[in-house]
Design a protein around this nucleic acid. Structure first.
Lengths: 231, 231
DNA sequence: GCCACTTAGTGTACGCATAACACTAAGCAT
DNA sequence: ATGCTTAGTGTTATGCGTACACTAAGTGGC
């Protein structure tokens, strides 16, 4: 079967930049390409958009197909569309890139269709990426760094219950600068949507910290009232 | 001549939301469609991306072809890519939308290819738009409202030399709220990139105001030094 | 020439948010 | 019991945003 059009069409793909956090570092989910071009190179998960398929759906589908990662209700946002001729050696391919935030420990990844491997790579120590994926990743990092300051998106990277130290460490990682401990705690709690669960950590070889959670309903309420956060 | 592919491909288009300011209102550039579908309806200028054509180039080309507007060195930025099936009644069409800012008095527009007419419409009083263009326009307005607060993009809507009252009126229009005159002037001048030309208005039936200009080189310098504006 | 009209242009005081800064508390391991 | 490690806490100074009302300068009409 084949499809014929009166004018030539660029191909349309989606690519996903999935950021994840484990105990130490901020990481990104990459696949090792099983086919040409760039066979054996690491790349962002992604692939062709089907006809009559929504582009966001395509991003989720490719992610699940290639890495086993299901993002049914997690943070996924459109990043930018890259359409410079030459970015794919085969032909003119336009790619709509997305970025997602997940807590690594809540998900397991495994290579599937079109991927020889799927793995989390620390941002500090990345392999050479296929296509223009290094550029896409760079744009995603800039966007994340900018957006985390005025939207509470960072919580998607943490487990449901977290300590204020974990939260502070997250912000320091994303903003790439140190943050004052007392001022940070004061401000976060003053925002009103980071709430104490009443529980504390267990099995830690030190004084256990209180556990907090992100109250999304409360955040939406504040947002409706016109409040603005700024970290 | 025709083109055949192994898998069906969505079509790829670009659409442009061009904002313009005249003496009174914020306006948007629309074309009246000359062909089906939606013949006779008003729509955003746009059209199909050619193979091996950069998507930004395609946006500029379509704009010039349909409205005569040349945007060689003016503010044009990618907005969002819309790819929900059904947004075009013919087939699955994915559209990469862009937005631009121009000073209406510096440009003339005239209908050309595929357009029966091209005209500036005030945002307050828009016709029903073709396709999902009302939605695209809404997203563009949100983006503009958000971005103008931390980037000096509004100057692209003004003539090269402008009064502080014009600038204030612009911000009030974009932000959709009133602004205190003394505080606004104090802050704008303190930013350091709005500079006095030394001249004043002529031919106005009242006290003439000083004329200022946006010093882009100075802005870039401040940006490099890590300063942040916030209006 | 004078008066009325219109928009330009200017300064201060108060309150709040940010930023800087160091010690005690609690639990675990040895 | 002691030492180690991270949790947790308050005050002060400064800068920034906000609120607010009158005088200045030019034009046009009478």
């Amino acid at each position: 079967m084949s499809f014929t059009y009166r004018y030539a069409r660029p191909a349309l793909t989606v690519d996903a930049v999935v950021f994840g956090l484990d105990d130490e570092d901020l990481k990104v989910l990459l696949i090792e390409r099983a086919g040409e071009p760039f066979r054996g190179a690491w790349a962002l998960p992604g692939g062709f958009v089907n006809v009559d398929e929504d582009i966001e759906t395509a991003a989720r589908r490719e992610l699940e197909e290639e890495t086993g990662l299901r993002l049914a209700d997690l943070y996924l946002e459109q990043l930018y569309t890259f359409g410079t001729p030459g970015r794919d050696p085969r032909e003119h391919v336009v790619s709509c890139a997305w970025y997602a935030l997940v807590n690594i420990r809540d998900h397991t990844v495994q290579a599937a269709t079109d991927a020889a491997a799927a793995a989390w790579w620390p941002l500090k120590d990345l392999p050479t990426l296929a296509f223009d994926h290094a550029r896409i990743l760079e744009v995603a990092r800039e966007r994340l760094r900018g957006k985390v300051r005025y939207r509470p998106i960072g919580f998607a990277l943490l487990p449901e219950r977290f300590t204020l130290s974990q939260l502070q460490h997250l912000y320091e990682t994303l903003l790439e600068r140190p943050v004052d401990k007392r001022n940070f705690r004061k401000k976060m709690l003053a925002l009103g949507f980071v709430v104490d669960t009443g529980d504390t950590e267990t099995d830690v070889p030190r004084r256990p910290a209180r556990l907090y959670r992100f109250d999304e309903a409360r955040y939406r309420e504040l947002e409706r009232e016109g409040f603005e956060m700024w970290v």
